[in-house]
């Protein structure tokens, strides 16, 4: 089998359109994961025992079950609960929930890295708990964990093909469809792989750039 460059070129527009779906799912999923992950990390630290424990249980549960199971679960169970979401939105929620559990552990490490003296200085200045966390702790806890969060961004990006299980026409699924229609799999699947590679490299570079800027800012 010879790689047909012309054919590859012709399928590119279709794949680029699907890439948009993949990127959108990643960006939105990551936004959910970052925000929810922070909320979970804070709830985990809460002085309310029931909240802290149930959050810990939730995180453990999500981390020890496969993403694919969670995707199916949400896809088939949510409508029964009266929550009607598109396949794409369900996928975003599933990715967001799954990675929120991982991100919360990263945030937790960030919080644990803050010396006790910072909390004490904030208390001695009579800052409220809200301001202590929002103004003193979070701004110091997050910059050091940006690389770890970035790794999860790339990991989530690579997990998006699982959304094809619930009929989301993302990149890989589109490549397969093209292959099935034309009986040529080599070109579309190669392109799918190449597109994943390129975007992963771009985001890794972006994260490193962000990291450098944060380091400069922290060193000030």
């Amino acid at each position: 089998m010879i790689f047909d460059w012309q054919f590859a070129w012709d399928t590119l527009p279709k794949l680029m359109a699907a890439l948009k779906v993949t990127v959108a799912a990643t960006v939105l999923g990551m936004a959910v994961a970052l925000a929810l992950g922070l909320a979970l990390a804070l709830a985990r630290r809460s002085r309310l025992q029931w909240l802290s424990w149930s959050t810990a249980g939730f995180i453990e549960f999500v981390r020890s079950t496969p993403l694919l199971v969670q995707i199916y679960f949400l896809f088939y169970i949510l409508p029964g609960l009266g929550i009607e979401l598109s396949a794409f939105a369900t996928g975003v929620v599933a990715l967001g929930l799954h990675y929120a559990a991982y991100c919360s552990e990263v945030y937790r490490a960030g919080f644990d890295g803050i010396p006790r003296g910072q909390w004490e200085a904030a208390s001695a200045l009579n800052l409220s708990r809200y301001h202590t966390i929002g103004r003193i702790i979070i701004p110091q806890a997050i910059p050091p964990v940006v690389p770890a969060l970035g790794n999860y961004l790339v990991a989530m990006f690579k997990d998006t093909p699982m959304l094809s299980a619930i009929t989301v026409l993302e990149l890989l699924q589109t490549g397969k469809v093209v292959g099935a229609e034309t009986f040529r799999y080599l070109e579309p699947l190669t392109l799918v792989g190449a597109l994943f590679l390129v975007l992963s490299l771009i985001s890794a570079a972006g994260i490193r750039g962000l990291e450098r800027r944060l380091q400069k800012w922290v060193a000030q």
């Binding site: 010396p115 003296g117 910072q118 004490e120 200085a121 001695a124 200045l125 003193i136 701004p139 110091q140 800012w217 922290v218």
Partner: peptide, 14 residues
């Protein structure tokens, strides 16, 4: 009504 200064300063580094 109370304020405190610590041995290790505990300034906010950011």
């Amino acid at each position: 009504k109370v304020g405190m200064v610590f041995q290790h300063f505990n300034l906010f580094p950011h």
